[in-house]
Amino acid sequence: MKKFFLFAIIILSIPLLTACGGEEGSADASEKETIRFGATTGPYSDMVTKAIIPLLKEKGYEVTNKEFTDYVQPNKALANGDLDANLFQHKIYLESFAKENNLDLSDVITVPTAPMGVYSNTYEDMESIENGSTMGVPNDPTNLARALTVLEDEGLIEVDDSVDPLRASLKDIEKNKKEIEFVEVEAGQLPRLVESEDLAMVPGNYALAAGMDLLDSLALEDMPDDYRNRVAVNTDDLETPFVKDIKEVIESDEFEKIMDEEFKGFGKPQWMKE
């Protein structure tokens, strides 16, 4: 009799345990309490820490930020589930990297981005640049395409209209009006070339990392939105509440106020200007 009574208790307990387990799983699936961000060391990690995290915390999230020193691992960490979102790349790089590595990643929203600038210890303005001056430019095609666009906007060169931003090279220059001698180096080394060359085209993140003031440049990039950095997530997460909350805090007046106070010189995306 005792054995029968014990067996009955066990049998009756099974539905209760199953119901409790199912209820807990549903909560985990529908409500995310912790968001794991990733960003490259420098201004975009600072943007996550100073602007995005505090506003997400006001919505009840716990948010962590992992810093990276390269442009490969943040996307791989996102794709394999070690991160929930990252911030470090523009649209062209994101789409190219995802395609080459067979990853299903999507952008959420563009953010204010540090523009590339022309820096010089030799000249005080673009008009005083002399024939035969030397200029450091990035040796990777994507950043070089941006540099060529800036120089064309400033009237120093003319570029082939069919230039591919993923394969740009100095051969795409059709007219070099001041016979500038270009010195190609890795983008991260360009701040040093301000000392050794007449001019250098320095991407904003590297300029800031080197302690340079964006507003000291002779000219700043009028950056197309495709070159502005953006928050990226796994495509499957695009419609989840936590991604919608990330987008909402970046669209907020509070976020823009922090940008204006802490990130002077950063170019705002088109949606912020409308």
Rank of each mutant, 00 (worst) to 15 (best):
K3A: 09
F4K: 12
F5K: 11
L6Y: 12
A8Q: 01
I9C: 14
I10R: 00
L12C: 13
S13F: 07
T18P: 00
A19K: 02
C20D: 07
G21M: 01
E23F: 12
G25F: 01
E33G: 04
R36S: 13
A39I: 06
T40I: 15
G42T: 08
S45E: 15
T49R: 12
L56P: 14
E58L: 06
V63R: 04
V63K: 02
Q73I: 02
P74A: 07
K76E: 14
K76V: 10
A77H: 12
D82H: 07
L83A: 12
N86Q: 15
Y93G: 04
F97H: 13
F97C: 04
A98Y: 03
L105N: 06
V111E: 10
V111H: 10
A114G: 13
N121R: 11
Y123V: 04
D125V: 03
D125Y: 06
D125G: 11
M126A: 13
E127V: 04
I129K: 05
I129Y: 07
E130A: 14
M135T: 08
P138C: 02
P141F: 06
T142H: 05
L144F: 04
R146D: 09
L148N: 02
L151K: 01
E154A: 14
L156P: 03
E158S: 13
E158V: 05
D164R: 03
P165R: 00
R167N: 15
L170H: 08
L170P: 09
L170I: 15
G188F: 10
G188K: 13
E197H: 10
L199R: 02
A207Y: 06
M212R: 09
L215R: 14
S217P: 05
S217Y: 05
A219C: 02
L220W: 07
D222Y: 01
R228E: 14
N229V: 14
N229A: 09
A232E: 15
V233G: 10
T235K: 13
V249A: 12
E251R: 11
E251S: 14
S252T: 08
F255E: 12
F255C: 12
E261R: 02
E261H: 00
F266G: 06
W271Y: 15
